[in-house]
Design a binder for these strands. Structure first.
Ligand SMILES: [Mn+2]
Ligand SMILES: [Mn+2]
Ligand SMILES: [Mn+2]
Ligand SMILES: [Mn+2]
Lengths: 220, 220
DNA sequence: GACTTAATTTAGTCTTGCCTAAAAAATATA
DNA sequence: TATATTTTTTAGGCAAGACTAAATTAAGTC
């Protein structure tokens, strides 16, 4: 495999992210928006990535990762998430602090290092935000999960991930002592604004807004 | 402190390395040779580094790090060596495999991360090659050490570092089961070529060439 | 001290990755 | 279908960091 620049890696990662659960082709503007770069620059880079057979690109009609491109992108996600686990599990960072550091660490070359890191961490399957860690082949564990917002009164579930990983959101969850693994029962749903009232395993009762509930993944 | 590019960091690191135990100014060619870049390119960069007050630079008369430049350079060395300890102690890499990975890891920004890493590693004072790890202030522990080649027949000592860290040299030492901490007595010095005969603590006897003995640091 | 050689800097280019402004193509609207 | 709007691409530039070739300065030699 050829050596990719950090920039190229980041483009592939963005395209993968935008493709998630979405087969259709990705537009230039979407990518530009995702990585905060002008559409003109993205257009330039797409041509280069297509030349390298990392994406299929038809002018004016969007892009899609090739198998090769997808492989690189998933490997990058794998590295990102393993480093996030390292930072939280070994260096005691909290889940809202690790993303930016992982953005840098993911570009360090050395698959052997990453495989050793994975083993050192005890072969984790999910990162600190509940996102699955691809294996060396790019395979990703599928979990049956749904958004908290989709639950009904009386449903019991456990929190297994967050959709939004913004610092403010994660810190808010910390402040109300909610984390991955927290078990609860839905004891009410407000019709007016779709806030949800939960009863946690530890006995506490909590009211969460629709926006919050739309960004928490649960498993029943 | 301003943000330095990886390139700038590497120039500072090279200048520090070349300055080691050597107060005189460093020449353009020396740097060019150290980082495998043309002298013309080095000349360009020196002007830029001088503009940023990271080095003092007088055209045609060489360069020297400023206090600021030295601080950056030592911090880089600190990061490099801590990552090398991580790779050997936690990921089980051997001492001949870690340098290139550390060359990448040292450029990851985040002093907090490095301080946590240091603590996680148990505040090591030396890296896997016996080189001292600067503290956050850039202070470096001084050890009384000398080269093996300087010893005389009958001297007892312990190996505490290597001067050459080339893969082939380190693998050679592995192959003859010599590592940091190995204790020995000099039982003979060949007059003809200055090879040295050692008796190790485990009873083995070894003959080492002058070149090998010139690249091993010992403490008595 | 003049001449030769070595070290260093300058001049002119190249590539990567970004930008803005303008042109072109696709899509939406009437 | 013609026009307006949005999206995307092209054109032209810029900065960083590299190169080679040429010019300049310093250092060494007779
Ligand atoms: Mn992340
Ligand atoms: Mn994550
Ligand atoms: Mn090293
Ligand atoms: Mn080292």
């Amino acid at each position: 495999m050829t050596h990719l620049s950090i920039t190229e890696e980041n483009y592939l990662k963005s395209i993968l992210k935008l493709s998630d659960h979405n087969q259709t082709k990705i537009g230039t503007n979407e990518i530009a928006n995702e990585i905060n770069i002008s559409a003109a620059s993205v257009s330039d880079m797409l041509r280069k990535l297509a030349d390298k057979k990392l994406i299929t690109y038809q002018k004016y009609y969007g892009v899609k990762l090739t198998k090769t491109g997808e492989h690189y992108a998933k490997n990058l996600v794998r590295k990102h998430r393993l480093w996030e686990v390292f930072l939280t599990q070994k260096l005691q960072f909290s889940w809202d602090e690790v993303h930016d550091l992982a953005e840098q660490l993911e570009h360090v070359k050395g698959d052997d290092m990453i495989n050793r890191l994975e083993k050192f961490l005890g072969n984790p399957k999910f990162d600190p935000h509940g996102d699955p860690i691809p294996d060396t082949m790019g395979n990703i564990a599928i979990r049956k999960q749904q958004l908290l917002i989709e639950l009904k009164k009386g449903d019991k579930a456990v929190i297994i991930g967050v959709k939004d990983t913004a610092t403010t959101f994660l810190q808010f969850l910390d402040s109300i002592k909610i984390s991955l693994g927290t078990k609860f029962t839905v004891i009410g749903v407000v019709i007016y604004d779709h806030s949800m009232q939960l009863k946690l395993q530890d006995g506490r009762e909590l009211m969460l807004s629709q926006q919050v509930c739309s960004n928490i993944f649960v498993s029943s």
